[in-house]
């Protein structure tokens, strides 16, 4: 009996220690998600309502021009941002891995933007891309009178400005992940390849890249989650403009919650975002858990 008591106390303590996490999981992560999904199926507008309307909010959402633009912007941004960040990050990691001088300085230079916020990133690039004083003015100052780089004020091109700023912010992160992956590759592979007379680029394409699947997957998932969360950058750089040309889904939700006071539409948009994330992350989690079970 006496021996049992401290064990029981410890068990209770463990439960107690896990209670904040359990509460957060149940109330916030599960409860609030269910609440949001439920509201998205009601007739709520400015005030919450409990009238069930099925998927009517979703009909309205996908007929909404601003939502359509937000979604297509997210696709364009997501594809370009991820490809550019992965390619540039990987190339930087390979370049740094060639035993270059000043490796530490270079790594710091490539990674420092990632330590700063998207607000700072957006504001700097807004200034650099300003047609009157920014890069366009520099080009013209060099004597190219017709040099044109006014993407940020044109509706068709503004989304590429967000891509440039996003890649500047995130490529260093990819580089850090890839460099860790490259350094983890067995040196013997390089020796074997040299004995076989393979040129280094062949070794990278045929052997190293396939071996770095895990690094690519990690980087891709991290980038993909930041794509769906994309909000601050659009707010700081263009505030969705010109017009509504650089709106994104997260901003659609926030604006409809707080400025336009349309809770039903906002929660339908948020739920659509959740479904998108689930479609991206679920296969990855499935593969990871299978790999872990196999190991």
């Amino acid at each position: 009996m006496l021996a049992l008591r401290p064990r029981l106390a410890s068990k209770l303590s463990a439960w107690l220690a896990l209670s904040p996490a359990t509460t957060i999981l149940v109330v916030v992560y599960v409860g609030c998600t269910a609440w949001t999904v439920w509201i998205s199926m009601t007739a709520s507008r400015m005030l919450p309502s409990s009238t069930f309307v099925g998927l009517r909010q979703y009909d309205a959402l996908f007929a909404n021009e601003r939502w359509q633009i937000s979604v297509s912007n997210l696709v364009v941004f997501g594809v370009l941002f991820m490809i550019a960040s992965l390619v540039l990050g990987f190339l930087l990691a390979v370049a740094i891995d060639q035993r270059v001088r000043a490796e530490n300085v270079l790594r710091s230079v490539f990674l420092y933007p990632f330590s700063m916020s998207f607000i700072v990133t957006g504001l700097v690039w807004q200034w650099l891309l300003n047609p009157t004083y920014g890069i366009q003015a520099v080009g013209r100052g060099f004597g190219f009178e017709t040099f044109r780089f006014d993407w940020i004020v044109r509706q068709e091109t503004v989304i590429y400005c967000l891509v440039i700023a996003g890649v500047w912010h995130a490529a260093g992160l990819v580089m850090a992940i890839m460099l860790a992956g490259l350094r983890g590759i067995d040196e013997d592979i390089w020796k074997a390849a040299r004995v076989d007379g393979l040129p280094p680029w062949r070794v990278y394409v045929s052997i190293v890249i396939p071996m770095m699947g895990a690094s690519f997957a990690t980087a891709a998932v991290l980038l993909a989650t930041s794509v769906v969360r994309l909000y601050d950058l659009s707010v700081a750089m263009t505030n969705g403009g010109p017009g509504i040309a650089s709106e994104v889904p997260a901003k659609f939700v926030m604006d409809h919650l707080f400025e336009r006071q349309n809770i039903g539409l906002a929660t339908a948009a948020a739920t659509s975002m959740l479904i998108t994330v689930a479609a991206v992350v679920a296969p990855w989690i499935y593969i990871q858990s299978r790999r872990r079970r196999a190991a």
Binding site: S10, K11, A14, W15, L18, A21, T22, L25, V28, Y29, G31, C32, T33, W35, T36, I39, T225, V228, R229, P249, A250, V253, M254, L257, I263, A266, T267, A269, A270, T271, M273, L274, V277, V281, I285
Partner: peptide, 28 residues
């Protein structure tokens, strides 16, 4: 500590880390 449901709790926490904030904001 071998608490019942520990691995389920951990797994769930790892999954919800990916959910966008917009889902939670109005209820919170």
């Amino acid at each position: 500590w071998r608490v019942r449901g520990a691995s389920a709790l951990f797994g769930a926490l790892m999954i919800v880390a990916f959910v966008p904030y917009q889902i939670f904001i109005y209820p919170l």
